[in-house]
Amino acid sequence: MLSIGEFSKICEVSTKTLRYYAEIGLIVPDEINPENGYRYYSIQQLKKMLLINRLKSYHFSLEEIKGLLEVEVDQYKEKLYAALHHKRREIENKIQAFEYTLQQMSNDILNVEHGIPMMAYLDRIEVQLVEAQPMNILYTRQMMSKEEYALGYGSYFSSLYEKIAIDQLTLLGTPMTIYHSQEYNPTGNDTEFAIPVKEAVKGTRDFSGGLCAKAMVKGAYSELTSVYAKLREWVDTEGYELVKSPYEIYVTDPKQAATLEDTVTEVYFPVQKK
């Protein structure tokens, strides 16, 4: 048996952290002396602790790790494989986003060096007044935070595509997101994911068209806030007002784009003249 100090030293995990892990049921000492409360770990638990450390280095949360450790033996390999694959994709997305940010910073540094204002790019965003066509959409709608949206974006559209395949619906357009909340709330916003289809079945609804201010962004979704700002400025300057929820249409599926720069998103503000 190993004392908590010995176990801590070998695994490079503080005794305070080990006590917390025991408290949440992640890894519990094999033995606790009832007289003095000393904690002891078995040699066999070293492998489990090293696995926990390994998964933490892969940016798994303690909750995710605990869930994997509790998986039935006959399902463990499959669950672990799926979890590792998903986490790798998350990290790849983050790396790609950091690379885009670094490129953006380099461009800003160059612009500042040449006396060009950092926000001058806003003037290059083109706004058009268009007549959007009505459509029938298959949708799912719920309250969700920005983090939940980022993590679950693919899964929400995947479930819609799955229903389209099962029900043999006719696809008429690319995915879209409609934002119904009147203001931003970090704890949750009224968000609707939708895909245009031909058939009017359970789970679909009419999405009315109409006059819209439209702008397009090519690149990372982080640029969308700039497009929203530009659209809002245009609406006010041109004497219009927003009449319905803004929405985005993903012209390019981010999963099929070679780089973030290749993704194309259209943003629509339904408007009317004041």
Rank of each mutant, 00 (worst) to 15 (best):
M1A: 14
I4G: 11
G5R: 03
G5Y: 04
C11H: 15
C11M: 15
S14N: 08
L18F: 06
L18E: 09
A22D: 15
V28P: 10
D30F: 12
E31P: 05
N33M: 08
N36T: 07
Y38E: 06
S42I: 15
I43D: 13
Q44D: 15
Q45R: 13
M49I: 14
L51Q: 15
K56I: 08
S57A: 10
S57T: 09
Y58W: 14
F60K: 07
L62H: 04
I65P: 02
I65R: 05
K66F: 14
G67L: 12
L69Q: 10
E70D: 14
V71H: 05
V73P: 13
V73W: 14
Y76E: 11
E78K: 08
K79R: 14
R89Q: 12
I91L: 12
I91V: 12
F98E: 15
F98I: 15
F98L: 15
T101S: 06
T101G: 05
Q103N: 14
Q103M: 11
N107D: 12
N111I: 05
N111C: 08
E113R: 14
H114C: 13
P117T: 07
A120K: 08
A120G: 03
D123G: 01
R124Q: 12
Q128M: 07
Q133E: 13
P134E: 04
P134T: 02
M135K: 05
M143Q: 10
M143D: 11
M143I: 10
Y149I: 11
G152I: 04
Y153G: 00
G154Q: 08
G154V: 04
F157W: 01
S159G: 04
L160P: 02
K163N: 09
Q168I: 03
L169V: 04
L169Q: 04
T170A: 01
L171G: 02
L171D: 07
T174P: 07
M176P: 00
Q182E: 15
E183S: 06
T187S: 06
G188H: 00
F193W: 02
I195Y: 00
K198W: 00
E199Q: 00
T204F: 00
F207P: 03
G209E: 00
G210L: 07
G210S: 11
A213L: 11
V217N: 01
K218M: 07
K218C: 10
K218F: 02
G219H: 05
G219F: 03
A229P: 08
K230I: 00
L231Y: 00
E233C: 10
W234F: 10
T237A: 11
E238F: 02
E238P: 03
E241G: 11
S245W: 03
S245R: 03
S245P: 09
Q256F: 12
T259C: 07
L260V: 10
L260P: 09
E261F: 03
V264Q: 06
T265I: 06
E266V: 00
Y268M: 04
Y268E: 03
F269Q: 03
